[in-house]
Amino acid sequence: MSSNIQTVDAHWVKRLLPARPAQAHKGYFGHVLVIGGDYGYGGAAIMAAQSAAHCGAGLVSLYTRQEHISAMLSRQPEVMANHQHFTEMLNRATVVLAGPGLGLSSWGKALLVQVLSCDKPLLLDADALNYLASLPATDQQRMQRDNRVLTPHPGEAARLLGCTTPAIEHDRIAAVQQLQLQFGGTVLLKGLASLIAGPKQQLARLNCGNPGMASAGMGDVLSGIIAALLAQGLSSFHAAALGGWLHGSAADAVAAKRGERGLLATAILPPLQKLLNGKPVK
């Protein structure tokens, strides 16, 4: 397999996110549907939806349990939150993000069955990855497609490949390429110097991020960023690579000011707008 690794940097922003046309309206920039937040796990889905709203998607919706609706609306009123009419919400969306806080109860599994059968650009994270790992290999192969992004951490990657976490960490390049080959689309393997493998043997590495990012919710925020970029028309590979760079660079900007310890996932949202628009973060 190819090991010609691209390095993501600030130039990717200007290349992939040109100035918006003067006549633009919210319909130009896609509609992200976040699906997640089973009982007791609303925060993950809320943070994913919030970060998608902060990263340029024209519209963001959240399908979650009823008990999380008020929290979502008070946290980010721009997000349209609902616990009913799932099929209608799925049909309206242009990009689907499934997994944050979803759980693997009958509720979450039933939603994933519908999600995996649709042909929209799709990001799978967290419990959606665990569900995918539990499927027979024939079903996994049948569901392969290029407009999908998987964002596993090493433990999730090990479950997907049926191996151990140390095996993933021993050769991360081989692991991310094997994941891409087996599941299709683009795979972002999280960790130190996160790796992104896409269709046509595309491969990129991130040289940003810091140990302060080892805190709850960081992966949920990353998923929302990538989904927003998918909604704005980027390919699965470019959305994952640029989204990972924006995520790590925003975290580095916050850590440079405040330090790494106590770095919260939502604390990286304020610098994102500047980074998205190619402006320096001070």
Rank of each mutant, 00 (worst) to 15 (best):
A197D: 08
Y28T: 15
Y131N: 09
R75P: 09
R145D: 15
K274I: 00
H68T: 11
I226D: 15
P270W: 00
E88G: 00
L242V: 11
P77L: 02
L111V: 01
E88Y: 00
A253S: 11
L181E: 07
A167H: 06
A228V: 11
V281A: 06
A48F: 08
A48Q: 08
H25S: 10
S70H: 07
L276P: 07
A174H: 12
Y41M: 14
Y131I: 09
N82P: 00
A44L: 06
I268V: 08
E88D: 08
K190M: 08
P211G: 01
Q232F: 04
Q114D: 15
S70G: 07
S3W: 04
H83V: 12
M47F: 12
G108E: 07
A228K: 02
N82H: 09
G191C: 04
C55K: 01
Q141A: 14
Y131D: 04
Y39Q: 08
Q232M: 06
L188N: 14
T94N: 07
R65P: 07
Q177C: 10
H153A: 02
T266I: 01
P121K: 06
E169M: 12
P21M: 04
H85G: 00
Q140I: 15
I196S: 10
A48C: 09
N130H: 03
A231R: 05
G217I: 01
L132R: 02
L188E: 15
L33T: 12
G56V: 13
D139F: 01
I35F: 05
A98D: 06
V113M: 02
V34Q: 10
Q180Y: 00
K14V: 00
E260W: 11
V221R: 01
A216K: 06
G198Y: 05
I168M: 00
A45E: 14
H170L: 09
V8F: 02
E78T: 14
I225Q: 05
L73Q: 15
